[in-house]
């Protein structure tokens, strides 16, 4: 099992970050999340705690060798349970992949709390993931865990950039005058030229990420001998 850890600051108040959490997808950067559904939602503790279970639909670029091993589609699902606690001022997200759990299991823990140094204006984001590859594929395991950590880092960076852009558009148009935060669509239209400039910047950022992951993909293909060997081992256990 490998652990991945990460911390970021968001320059927005905690309340607003939690509201934006529901509207995080779609965004220009994290395009791999193509669907978000709520499966269960309960209000507890006299209206102070909101627990939600969501299903995220993910369309991932998966290296060809993984597709070969899994023989499947590139659509996968993630289950997330989130808890907003108004008294504690915390938002906790606990997520796990639903597909191929025997091969690779990623359990992610994300916490959003008011930033200890500037609790009214900033939010501290901390992220932790446990990545476990199944033993079945022997030699593949370490490579798979490393690849996943890499992919996780890529997506964590994308997630931050994407969430920032959502927060910005919500903040600038709506939160300030206390109106509905739900009209992201109109916000984007209203922002017009200003927004398209921002989208260009976002695209440049996304492009850099893609280039980076392409480079990693190339490194991965260099391991092909190892994968073929491991795959043969799995087919013909000793």
């Amino acid at each position: 099992m490998k652990l991945f850890e990460n911390k970021y600051d968001f320059d927005y108040p905690w309340e607003q970050v939690t509201a934006a959490n529901w509207q995080k997808y779609p965004n220009e950067v994290a395009t791999h999340v193509v669907g978000v559904d709520v499966l269960r939602r309960e209000l507890k503790d006299n209206g102070n705690v909101l627990v939600s279970e969501r299903l995220l639909t993910v369309q991932q670029k998966v290296p060809r060798w993984i597709m070969m091993v899994l023989g499947g589609s590139n659509i996968s699902y993630v289950r997330e349970v989130s808890t907003v606690n108004l008294k504690e001022k915390s938002l906790k997200l606990r997520s796990c992949n639903l597909n191929y759990v025997n091969l690779l299991r990623v359990y992610e823990m994300v916490d959003y709390i008011p930033h200890p140094e500037d609790p009214y204006n900033k939010t501290l984001f901390s992220q932790q993931a446990q990545i476990t590859a199944g033993g079945k594929f022997g030699k593949l395991v370490n490579t798979l865990e490393d690849w996943s950590i890499q992919r996780f880092c890529d997506n964590a960076a994308k997630g931050k950039a994407g969430f920032d852009s959502v927060l910005r558009s919500l903040w600038e148009e709506h939160w300030d005058n206390n109106s509905l935060v739900i009209k992201v669509n109109e916000t984007v239209d209203d922002l017009g030229l200003q927004m398209s400039k921002r989208v260009t910047e976002m695209n440049a950022a996304a492009e850099a990420v893609i280039k980076e992951s392409l480079r990693k993909f190339t490194i991965l293909t260099d391991y092909q001998d190892l994968f073929t060997e491991a795959f043969d081992d799995a087919k013909n256990p000793h």
């Binding site: 509207q23 220009e28 193509v34 669907g35 559904d37 709520v38 935060v181 669509n185």
Partner: peptide
């Protein structure tokens, strides 16, 4: 930019989801 509300995993639920999301986000 297209629509800024996310889709459902099942296309036929997307409209119902958006109606619910609008209500929820405001609440």
């Amino acid at each position: 930019m297209g629509n800024s509300m996310s889709a459902s995993f099942a296309p036929e639920c997307t409209e119902l989801k958006k109606t619910y999301d609008s209500c929820f986000n405001e609440w």
